[in-house]
Amino acid sequence: EITKEQQALMKVIADAYNRHQIPQDVAKKLLQDQYSAEENFLLLTEMATSQVQVLVEFTKNIPGFLSLNHEDQIALLKGSAVEAMFLRSAQVFSKKMPNGHNEVLEDRIRRSGISEEFMTPMFNFYKSIGVLHMVQEEQALLTAITILTPDRPYVKDQQAVERLQEPMLDLLRKLCVLQHPQKPQYFACLLGRLTELRTLNYYHAEMLTSWRMN
């Protein structure tokens, strides 16, 4: 059973998540005509910057986040930005887009110069998220849980972060039971994706280096 307080929390998180999306004009550019390698690089950089801004705006709305120590806020965002971006991108790929748009996007990313060894796990992750068919509330909560990971580097007051993360985990667990009664392992599957995300985050620096080099 989801309590009234939990329903309110879910609404705040889901609303904030829906409100803060990459601006249409930035997203649209991805589907436009051919770009040179350099333009492609700049475009993806612009997208990444926009994603970080959107992520920060979303995070500001997570109840209790702004009451954390300011440097801890930055440490949490810095530690989770890449994972949150992969999560958001995975959801873009899971959405039903107009015919051909998925292919254009995938092709653009595949031709961006990132080495194949990083590309494969990334698209595998997108697929593994896609098959879960998460509802928006689950996506929003999973992102909030990712951001509120207490053991990110340089976080001083881990307990304060845990106190914010625990209610989200409890709510997500209940939501999974309600939304997917026929899949008792669903919550565990979602947490498993977070582990996968950590691996992607770990290789992200190397991935960027390969991108820049190419």
């Binding site: 612009e46 910057t49 970080v52 801004q53 920060v56 300011h70 806020q73 930055i74 930005a81």
Partner: peptide, 21 residues
């Protein structure tokens, strides 16, 4: 432009709400 900033700079500015400055 924001694209020339590092991740931490973008986060700090967005947290302070003055990315346009």
């Amino acid at each position: 432009p924001a694209s020339n900033l590092g991740l931490e700079d973008i986060i700090r500015k967005a947290l302070m709400g003055n990315l346009e400055e």
